[in-house]
Computed example of a mutant assay.
Amino acid sequence: MNNKIILFLIIILTSLFIFFICFFMFTNFTVKKVEIDRDFFLDDKKFYKYLNIKENSLIWDFDKKKIEEKLAKQSYLSFYKVIKKYPNTIRILLRLKKPIAKIVVQKGDVYFIDDKCSIFRKHKINYSIPLICYINEEKVTLNYKANDYIKKVIDSLVLLKNKNKNVYDGISQIDIIEHSNKNLEYIVNYRTINAKIYLKNYINVDLLERGLICALYIEENNLDVENVVYTGNGFIF
């Protein structure tokens, strides 16, 4: 009889111990807070739904890998990271790609391109940035690896924006034309100025600045000049 009582008490105590352990775990290790550290506007409810973040789930059941796989599909993100902060917090870091220009892609669609030549579709900006038109636009897609011609334009725009933002802001469009003899033309259009600047095989910050000066000179002196050409030795108009 005593053995049965002892066994019964052991079962009761074990059950209570397991219950309190489970209660403690559920109370303290259930995800209670999701922190999203971001540098852009985001609809949190839609974001949670997309990531399938469920309330009242235990923190170790939270699958970081699956969340990061979904974040990796968002081409507008330059950086993302998912962090578990024990006992009950999930922290998600998100950083938005910063477009340096727009670019015409397949079928005439216009996407964005950042300083690392990464092309992406979505971005909400309230200011004008230069548009790049590459003659072989049918080759340009979201996964397109930018060639040297486009890279030179992007590198020049990045340096120009850091050095002289007024000139950067003044550029409306840059056309990249590749001729059959492998010669290149970079045609630069400035906002509010009619003259176009033709850069033969060259593009850099200095030429973009000097090109604007030439265009302004033509505009201010009412010269009947539509095109200014740089051949390597200087500007001709």
Rank of each mutant, 00 (worst) to 15 (best):
Y144L: 11
T141L: 10
R95Q: 14
N143E: 14
T89Q: 14
K98V: 15
K85A: 07
E55P: 06
T89P: 00
K98C: 04
W60H: 11
Q74K: 12
L71K: 04
K98N: 15
L77F: 07
I53Q: 00
K102G: 03
V82P: 01
E68L: 06
F112S: 00
E55M: 08
N56T: 03
V82M: 08
P130D: 08
E137N: 13
L77C: 04
H123C: 12
F112M: 05
E137L: 07
K97W: 03
K122Q: 12
Y111R: 04
I103G: 02
K98F: 06
D114L: 10
E137F: 12
F62E: 04
N147Q: 09
I53K: 05
D61Y: 09
Y134H: 08
K70S: 08
I92F: 02
K107V: 00
K145C: 04
L96D: 03
Y144E: 07
D109N: 13
N126K: 11
Y80A: 05
N88F: 11
S118N: 15
I90F: 00
S78H: 05
K65C: 03
D115R: 15
I132P: 01
D115K: 15
Y144T: 07
V105P: 02
L71H: 05
K97E: 04
C117S: 15
K139E: 15
K145V: 12
Q106K: 15
K81G: 01
D148R: 14
S128H: 09
P99S: 09
F62K: 01
E137C: 03
N147K: 13
N147C: 07
I92Y: 02
F62V: 08
C133W: 12
L131K: 13
K139I: 09
A146Y: 04
A146R: 05
F120V: 11
F62H: 02
Y127S: 15
A146T: 14
N52A: 10
I67N: 00
K70E: 10
I92W: 01
F79V: 09
I92M: 04
K102V: 03
N136I: 02
I119H: 02
V105Q: 06
K85Y: 01
F120Y: 15
K122F: 13
V110S: 05
K66N: 12
I67C: 05
I119S: 03
N136K: 13
V140F: 03
I103S: 05
Y134W: 11
K73H: 02
K85I: 09
